[in-house]
Design a protein around this nucleic acid. Sequence first.
RNA 1: GUGGCCAUAGCUCAGUCGGUUAGAGCGCUAGUUUGUGGAUCUAGAGGUCGUGGGUUCGAUCCCCAUUGGCCACCCCA
Length: 458
Amino acid sequence: MKPSIPKGTRDFTPLETARRKYIFDTIRSAFELYGFEAIETPAMENLSTLTGKYGDEGDRLIFKILNSGDFLKDIREKDLSVDFPNDWVPFISEKALRYDLTVPFARFVAMNRNSIPFPFKRYQIQPVWRADRPQRGRYREFWQCDADVVGSPSLLNEAELIQIYDEVFSNFKLPVKILINNRKILAGIAEVIGKPDQLIDITVAIDKLDKIGVEKVMEELQNKGFDTETISKLQPVFDLKGNNEHKLAFLSSYLHSSETGKLGIEELRQVLDFFEGDNKLNLRDSSIEVDITLARGLNYYTGTILEVKAAEIDFGSIGGGGRYDDLTGIFGLPDVPGVGISFGADRIYDVLLMQGLFPQSAITSTEVLIANFSTADQRYALGLLQTLRQSGIRTEIYPEFAKLKKQFDYAEKKNIPYLLIYGEGERQNRIAEIKELSSGKQISIDISEIADFKKQFK
RNA sequence: GUGGCCAUAGCUCAGUCGGUUAGAGCGCUAGUUUGUGGAUCUAGAGGUCGUGGGUUCGAUCCCCAUUGGCCACCCCA
């Protein structure tokens, strides 16, 4: 048969896997540096846990798992007047692949409320699945790296999460823009123009400003039934430019009649204050930019909204997050606020690759290959092999008596920097030959000093 | 879910206005070199031209369907 894998999924070669490990390790150590603990949840959840949490569009993109056994039995017992297939779903599927890490985490918190400390700081690095149509930067199986704090309304958490973004992307040598907004500001805007109930329509439209331009956004609002007068009230929002302070000043006057809006401004200001003035937190390579067109994740976010984009390349969002007042309530644990961020590992991979930012150290595996010529050589070389490994040097021996050229080729393909030659002649002289492939430099070294051979190449 | 482009060797792609043995580069194998690579040269292996059907004396080429890939919209990491 012809081998293939499902649409939107990928195999990873050793090189790709090493690079991905570099990404995960970098993110993981930042999470741990900031006091987050790892958890894991199952690849599949009960379908009822997931449905209704991501909006209609989200529900459609959930991968559902067919029940085992004679799952059509229940349907036969009903009547078949229901329409296939959507009405059948409750009968034929009760499990689904997780769609993100946040909702399973909320479920986890509700279930384990008595055994975890609050505020609970957890991180989670696992794959998620979406039945989306794949395209550039979009896969059906991809990995998210989430860090969330639940049980604390403090905006200090926001500041720390922003610092984590800065920490990680600075370590990647990838300058980023951290966009920030507040859901309450968006709600305030909807109030001010007299359409508090159409918050979603408004924000979805505003969100597209930089993509499709003012005119198309207005057109879309008209199609949604907004009258000209209402749209004109939004005009100042469309036109807003300038630095963060300027934007906040504008919002203060624009939203002065909305209590919710003013609250949003205050929250936003407090978060930004952590990074200004005396005793401020410093960001290394990132900038924070207030962006009131940032809407994302309207399903459960209620306060701060964050999104990260590479500063020098347009590749969509490579991370996002926000605050939610009550994500666990629906699982029976009310009044637990939370805030979290997510890194899109697969998009970060693509961006780092395009920018040439993967360090060589991320892809080196074996350091020394011992060439193998004969049964006798091989037996004696095993001692060296063991010595090198016990010294922590990643070493392998070529398992067959092949031509030296072939062994060189093997070392090159595996990116092994050193080839060690230890044949009969060397053995009698108690030495080994070690060649650095990149430079061609070759040394002889007494085998008693073999573990320190790298000094000879510096 | 909607729309567009594409599918020829392991990879990147030529090609045939429908006609006999479908090509190149790279890669691979072997030799040049029975323990010192990356170069050169030589030889070789490798393709049911995505799959199914149709038109035709004849289809890799034209038509239809299907599958897969890419891209845009929607949405999103």
